[in-house]
Amino acid sequence: METQLVLEKWPGAVSTVSIGAKKEEGGTRSCSIKIGGESALPLLFKEGSIPNKPKIAFEVWDIAPCDWPEELLAAYGEEINDPLAWADKCVNKYKAELLCVKMQGAHPDFGNKGTGESAKFISRLLSRVNVPLVIIGSDDDTKDNLIMPAVSEAAKKERCIIGCAVQDNYKTLAASALADGHSLIAQSPIDINIAKQLNILISDMGLAFERIVMDPTIGALGYGLEYAYSIMERARLAALSGDKTLACAFICFIGQEAWKTKEAKSSIEQGIVWEAVTASSLIQAGADLLVMRHPKAIEKVNNFIEILYSTPRL
């Protein structure tokens, strides 16, 4: 006897964010990638529309990474010491669809690069690779408030995602995103109320909810992943129930969390699995854009996404 599935119908939907502007849209990217847009919980294809697959962005820095395990660095070979070549390798060798550039070199403790230098780096990166970009600051609020407006302007009309705005420091970034046509990452500390408050504050600045991507802050497998999972689940349930202030796509910084763990540092095989499992778990919580580090982990997760999205659908 055939079982009748009980289907939930949701009044709300997550907004769709386009990353990258093609020539006809005023940019120079080879393609434009869409994330978000779901009107159902993750993978429950029959309950609503899930128009876009989760996407993975390769994480690259504007300097050679300083705290990545040796064996992770080795995955990129010599090119890791030349950020532009590194980015190029991600795109051409590993077929990255997206890059997430972290302006770590601007941090006072890691090179303290100036505004001009940071902006120039982005210009050169844009001419070297043609995939859509996510650009995030150095994690130093004061410094980011100086460089990010210039960095954002250097990528004007390229329709990037820039970040990360936090509750105590969101205005400069929001103003830049607004001025230069980017979307904005709103980062909250595993707290659904702050996530929502930050989205409201940003939208009060004039940036539409549709141009906000939420970073719920995640923990790696074994390091609080379940907290992130449940916060994402709650936010998504609220969004689908019609709460516009939470109806934003999720970005998850998988690589930076997974490669901090002692398990990942102790063996490269374990590290790859650790990163891949963290990513695939959060895909089930609703992650739309994953920022990852190891090409092999990314390959595994991409395969996983393919399987999820091609098996006969319930």
Partner: peptide, 16 residues
């Protein structure tokens, strides 16, 4: 606690 954290915003986290 949940209700309280929601109220720590002007006027409230739930604008509705």
């Amino acid at each position: 606690m949940e209700e309280y954290s929601q109220a720590l915003f002007f006027p409230h986290t739930d604008l509705t």
